[in-house]
């Protein structure tokens, strides 16, 4: 396990209520309703198929602009929070930002976003932080849980949740029982080589 200075920092998992405005949430929900087909179909053999829409896949200039703005606000929030606690920090970049939709039956078993137990190589070791913005609450199940921390919750809509990618923050998502769970997820990295240009 990598001993990053931010892992275990008392402010994480960071829960920031009302991070987006209600207008922004409604804009996102209208977009998702109008562009549901853009996600494609789900595939029982491909866990993420038909469930994500990344910034480059979004074919709506207004929505792209909002996603970029949100990404910058998330980076600003996390970078400022780290500098307050740890002193000057190198630039933080967005790796990816995407909508994620979770139909009934989908769940995610506990995992970390940048590390594997036992030191097994992880496909995304540069993902230093994950962030999730909660867009709706008209679904059943779907709670995020952190088994190592004894935390399980469904953050209110408009909330931003941020946590490090280390094993301290193993997390999973309980099965959605009905409705469609919608989130806007992104990963942040200090590694400029994995900077997805969101300018």
């Amino acid at each position: 396990m990598t001993d990053h200075p931010w892992s275990g920092l008392a402010c994480f998992p960071l829960l920031e209520p009302e991070f987006i405005t209600e207008d922004e949430r409604q804009t996102a929900l209208r977009f998702l309703a109008a562009h549901a087909a853009d996600f494609g179909g789900t595939d029982p053999d491909d866990y993420w198929a038909g469930r994500t829409l990344t910034l480059p896949q979004v074919r709506d200039a207004g929505m792209q602009s909002l996603m970029r703005d949100l990404q910058h606000r998330i980076i600003h929030k996390v970078h400022g929070l780290l500098e307050e606690r740890l002193g000057p920090q190198p630039p933080l970049y967005a790796d990816v930002i995407n909508f994620a939709r979770w139909p009934p039956g989908y769940e995610l078993l506990p995992h970390a976003d940048a590390e594997n137990p036992g030191g097994e190589p992880h496909p995304y070791p540069w993902r230093h932080f994950a962030s999730v913005i909660y867009l709706n609450d008209d679904y059943g199940g779907g709670a995020i849980h952190f088994p190592e921390l004894g935390i399980e919750l469904r953050p209110p809509v408009r909330t931003l949740l941020v946590f490090p990618g280390t094993l301290d923050y193993l997390h999973g998502v309980r099965a959605v029982t009905h409705g469609m769970r919608h989130t806007l997820a992104s990963f942040l990295t200090f590694d400029a080589a994995h900077h997805a240009d969101t300018t």
Binding site: L9, A10, L86, G87, G150
Partner: peptide, 9 residues
Amino acid sequence: MKPTGRLTP
């Protein structure tokens, strides 16, 4: 630089 604490379960 502010010192930090490690918040354990």
